[in-house]
């Protein structure tokens, strides 16, 4: 767990530097504090051994922090942490038993409860308050005008370098990819989920973009916006809530990628990563069941030397 936290560091650093040291540090601090307090408190009440030192609560806190606007109120961060740990994890029996990614449960509860605060982001570097993230700008333009208007298009041109609200662009994507690659190299996660998640999102968004580029943004835009990289490398790969088998992981990743693009383009919310991962989390047990590996010697293909069973 601590290693995963280490892999998140480059992204966190970038996050802090872009959104203002004070505000973002406080948000991260309060999210982590909320998670750790919730975990320790719950275990104290239930007279269980305190498991804060395994790092899983801290990691949930950091992941949650990267999902809320840096300018969010401190009590929101704290509340998110509580919800993530208690409703997302402890009620199911603690580490290893939760069906849904706790950080995403926290984020989703906050998003539904405080839609305005959760979608009010600051501009990176300038720290101006804006409600328009690139994804919501596109959603609104398409909703109002039926296509991506030239003004929005002009705005979007800066997206690669992180010119829009809540958006760090390509730099954050690279930081996340670096952290993800480190995790793969250290064999903490495997390549299956990130590759199939990002790959399927890229392919599906490309198809839409090729069909009508005035209505649907480019696949590269999808890659660098929202929480796609964070989700693909750090949230969907959560051991507990993702399938066990490599085959199952690919199915899971493709499901996440496809749902993300569909929600972004046709759903009610501008961003779909969190919802798609949560939906696929719920499908994990059935994916595991359906992708159970073929046991050794179950069907020797070669030589036709199958013994008959009585």
């Amino acid at each position: 767990m601590w290693e995963v936290i280490g892999a998140l560091c480059p992204c966190c650093l970038l996050w802090i530097l872009s959104f203002g040291v004070q505000a973002s540090c406080l948000t991260i601090l309060f999210c982590v504090l909320g998670c750790v307090l919730a975990e320790a408190g719950w275990e104290l009440i239930r007279k269980q051994p305190i498991t804060v030192r395994d790092g899983s609560a801290v990691m949930t806190g950091i992941l949650l922090a990267l999902n809320v606007p840096p300018n969010a109120a401190w009590w929101m961060a704290l509340l998110g942490g509580f919800v993530a740990i208690i409703i997302g994890k402890q009620v199911f029996g603690g580490l290893g038993c939760n069906p849904f990614n706790p950080a995403l449960v926290g984020r989703t509860v906050l998003l539904i409860s405080f839609p305005v605060q959760m979608t009010t982001w600051v501009m990176p570097r300038t720290h101006e308050i804006t409600s328009a993230t690139p994804l919501s700008a596109v959603k609104m333009a398409v909703g109002l005008h039926g296509n991506i208007t030239p003004e929005v298009q002009a705005q979007l041109s800066g997206v690669f370098y992180g010119g829009l609200g809540g958006q760090l662009g390509v730099l954050s994507a690279l930081a996340l990819i670096a952290g993800g690659c480190w995790l793969i190299y250290r064999k903490i996660i495997t390549w299956h989920i990130p590759a199939s998640f990002i790959g399927s999102a890229f392919v599906l968004s490309s198809i839409f973009w090729l069909v009508d580029s005035s209505k649907y943004p480019s696949p590269l835009f999808h890659m660098v916006t929202g929480g796609l990289m964070l989700g693909a490398f750090f949230m969907a790969t959560d051991w507990v809530t993702s399938p066990l088998t490599p085959k199952g992981m690919v199915v899971f990743g493709i499901g996440c990628g496809v749902l993300t693009v569909l929600i972004r383009l046709f759903g009610g919310y501008p961003e779909g990563v969190a919802f798609s991962i949560l939906l696929m989390n719920s499908a994990t047990p059935i994916i595991d069941r359906l992708t159970m590996p073929r046991k050794f010697g179950a069907m020797p293909k070669k030589f036709g030397l199958v013994t008959k069973k009585g």
Partner: peptide, 22 residues
């Protein structure tokens, strides 16, 4: 002994292709 976090290491290591943790 800790709780299973479903990391899948056992599934990948199993030479008989069964799912130990399940």
């Amino acid at each position: 002994e800790g709780p299973c976090v479903r990391c899948g290491n056992c599934v990948r290591a199993c030479p008989a292709f069964i799912m130990p943790t399940e």
